[in-house]
């Protein structure tokens, strides 16, 4: 084990997929299927938000386009 483990971009992305999967799994386990569509939409938005944050220094220009 290296002393200063730092996840790579790929690992971070995979971890986030894992988190999203865990969230969906939690809802299905609790039997609340009806929340799945809502959470899927929100996760999609979340991906967009994260992307915009990663390039936040040009965010104003991106939003101009929309």
């Amino acid at each position: 084990m290296s002393e200063n483990y730092q996840p790579s971009k790929l690992e971070t992305t995979l971890m986030r997929f894992g988190t999203a999967g865990a969230l969906l799994a939690m809802l299905t386990r609790g039997g609340r299927w009806w929340m799945l569509p809502l959470v899927l939409v929100l996760l999609f938005v979340g991906v967009g938000l994260l992307f915009l944050q990663s390039i936040h220094y040009v965010a104003p220009f991106i939003y101009m386009v929309f």
Binding site: L49, L52, H56, Y57, A59, P60, Y63
Partner: peptide, 14 residues
């Protein structure tokens, strides 16, 4: 300063 503006602007838009 630009980053702050950009972040705040992004916050409002999102």
């Amino acid at each position: 300063g630009w980053l702050r503006f950009s972040r705040d602007f992004g916050a409002v838009m999102s």
